[in-house]
């Protein structure tokens, strides 16, 4: 163990600029110069099992990991969490807004459709009413004109009947006159007025 330590120490102190300031360069040079030729590297055995190096690795691991943990938990992660949270909040509020807008749109559409249906029903009612009123008026006018026509027809028929009756009455008188004249001419004497009237009436009845 002590021997190994000595050899390890030797490795580093053997480098040309073994002093502290240029140590990093020295180590780098060390790496590059040794890649080709294996040398005392094996004196420590299998490197990962070389217990000489354990304490420094653990100490630096604890240090680096601890600092990294603090940086992550105090600085980096809260920032990422905040951004993700903000984005999630933004997305959900946007979605909510979109939902509200959609509800508004739906309400507006429903209101429009309702108004439209009402207007249509109203228009329908007005049309129906107008149609009914017009039909009623037409009917009334028709009935009136029919009634007046019927009156006129009746009057005409009455006047026709009166004319016919008076004509017929005239026919009788004319016939009586004509028959009296004919009888007078044929017999040379005035015919009996009553007999002529009877004869004409009888003849008229037969016709």
């Amino acid at each position: 163990m002590a021997q190994d330590m000595a050899v390890n120490e030797g490795v580093t102190t053997d480098t040309p600029t073994g002093a502290m300031p240029g140590a990093a360069d020295a180590a780098l040079e060390h790496v590059t110069t040794e890649t080709g030729v294996p040398q005392e590297a094996h004196s420590g055995g299998f490197p990962p099992f070389n217990a000489q190096t354990f304490s420094s690795q653990v100490i630096w691991l604890v240090l680096v990991f601890g600092v990294l943990y603090l940086l992550m938990s105090r600085l980096a992660l809260p920032r990422i969490a905040r951004v993700i949270e903000e984005r999630r909040g933004r997305i959900s509020s946007d979605l909510e807004q979109a939902g509200a807008a959609k509800a508004q749109t739906d309400a507006a559409i429903a209101a429009y459709e309702k108004a439209f249906a009402e207007a249509r029903a109203k228009a329908h009612a007005i049309a129906q009413e107008t149609r009914d009123r017009l039909t009623a008026e037409t009917d009334k006018q028709r009935h009136e004109s029919e009634a007046s026509l019927a009156g006129k027809i009746a009057a005409a028929e009455a006047s026709i009947a009166a004319t016919k009756a008076s004509a017929l009455a005239n026919v009788r008188l004319v016939a009586i006159d004509v028959a009296g004249a004919i009888v007078t001419r044929l017999l040379g004497e005035d015919a009996d007025k009553a007999a002529t009237e009877n004869a004409v009436d009888a003849a008229l009845k037969r016709s």
Binding site: A24, E34, A41, S56
Partner: peptide
Amino acid sequence: LHQFMIQKIVP
């Protein structure tokens, strides 16, 4: 195995 060697930079 050389790549696994621990090299001291600052003792």
